[in-house]
Simulated assay, not measured.
Amino acid sequence: MNPTIKDVAKYANVSIATVSRILNNTSVGYSDKTKKKVLQAIDELSYKPNAVARGLINNKTQTIGVLFPSVSGMVTSELLYGIEGVAHQHGHSIIVCNTSSSGKKTVDYLRLLNEKRVDGLVFASEVLKNEHYQLIEEMRIPAVLVSTKSPRHPLPYVKVDDRDAAYTAVSYLIDNGHRSIGMMSGSPKDPIAGRPRIEGYKAALQENDITVEKSYIVDAEGFSYENGRTAFEKLLKQASGITAVFAASDEMAVGAIASAYKIGVNIPKDISIIGYDNIKISEMAVPPLTTLAQPLREMGEKSAELLFEALKTGKNGSSIIMPHHVVERESVQKLN
């Protein structure tokens, strides 16, 4: 039978209230000698505090909620790894919610997390709508955005500047002699990763006196491998003169490489490809994918650190723009 707080109090010859104060780091009501005695009793009895019971006492559940539009993506796994690591350091567990980019599911999960009385929220990748923000406000807990931001609502965020990052990726292709450059993008209606990356692509071309051809841009509903396969085939049909492609995600880029192999197009001899993210699959592609790296794991860590700082101080921290850089591999050929 597992020992209880009553057993600890009896073993240390103190009151249950004293044990509770020590467990919850209350700074008054006991001496250092008493604290040492109670901690020794906890160790010798192998007592494990009940998180629910502690939550009833200090109004904390030692859990945070994390909302992703898709938990199966490789970008998500890297962000989650970073968030979980910091949460563990702070003695917290996480509840992960897969919203599937659905407004209703996001609302339902926010209500569920409110019922679970989580201490804070990390809101990832998805657009923060007014109804989401109102629910977070009603929960009266801190929240941090990661890989997304909201121009309307004053929540701190951690992300790469998508427009600048896309500009850097396309500029790399131009610096390698390419001037006929296509793009496989997400939806232009997506204000987080769709439209900004398209704008960065266009800006790089325009600043190098290259005409932006509408037929050179193929947009998709998402950033998946299948989106990349389909978009690449469509791009080749409507933009036959391109020598390079900027893919708005690594998964799209790998889909394009698979499609190219199937139809006999050599990467990079016939067409060069640069991706976006630098997830693990980019190293495993054939050829290995040159890509624009965003530090996903570190972004997850920073978002969690901002959240725990807010839990500690009661104030929101400042938003963080993370650095990006090109990782050179073998999918881009230099033209004379």
Results as ranks from 00 to 15, higher is better:
Leu173Asp: 09
Ile174Arg: 10
Ile174Pro: 07
Ile174Gln: 10
Asp175His: 15
Asp175Phe: 09
Gly177Lys: 13
Gly177Ser: 13
Gly177Gln: 11
His178Phe: 14
His178Glu: 13
His178Lys: 06
Arg179Asp: 12
Arg179Ile: 08
Arg179Leu: 09
Ser180Val: 01
Ser180Thr: 08
Ser180Gly: 02
Ile181Thr: 08
Gly182Arg: 06
Met183Gln: 13
Met184Arg: 09
Ser185Gln: 06
Gly186Trp: 15
Gly186Thr: 09
Ser187Gln: 08
Ser187Phe: 15
Pro188His: 09
Pro188Thr: 10
Pro188Leu: 08
Lys189Asp: 15
Asp190Ile: 03
Asp190Lys: 03
Pro191Gln: 12
Ile192Ser: 02
Ile192Leu: 04
Ile192Asp: 08
Ala193His: 15
Ala193Trp: 14
Arg195Tyr: 14
Arg195Thr: 05
Pro196Arg: 13
Pro196Asp: 11
Ile198His: 10
Ile198Asp: 05
Ile198Met: 15
Ile198Thr: 04
Glu199Leu: 05
Glu199Asp: 15
Glu199Gln: 14
Gly200Asp: 06
Gly200Leu: 04
Tyr201Lys: 01
Tyr201Phe: 10
Lys202Gln: 13
Lys202Arg: 06
Ala203Gly: 03
Ala204His: 06
Leu205Gly: 02
Leu205Gln: 10
Gln206Leu: 10
Gln206Phe: 07
Asn208Arg: 06
Asp209Leu: 02
Asp209Phe: 09
Ile210Trp: 05
Ile210Tyr: 09
Thr211Trp: 10
Thr211Leu: 12
Glu213Val: 01
Ser215Asp: 15
Tyr216Gln: 13
Tyr216Arg: 08
Tyr216Ser: 07
Ile217Phe: 07
Ile217Ser: 00
Ile217Thr: 03
Ile217Leu: 03
Ile217Cys: 03
Asp219Arg: 02
Asp219Ile: 01
Asp219Cys: 03
Asp219Glu: 08
Ala220Lys: 11
Ala220Ile: 03
Ala220Tyr: 12
Glu221Asp: 14
Gly222Leu: 00
Gly222Asp: 09
Phe223Arg: 01
Ser224His: 12
Ser224Met: 13
Tyr225Ser: 01
Tyr225Pro: 00
Tyr225Asp: 08
Glu226Arg: 14
Glu226Leu: 15
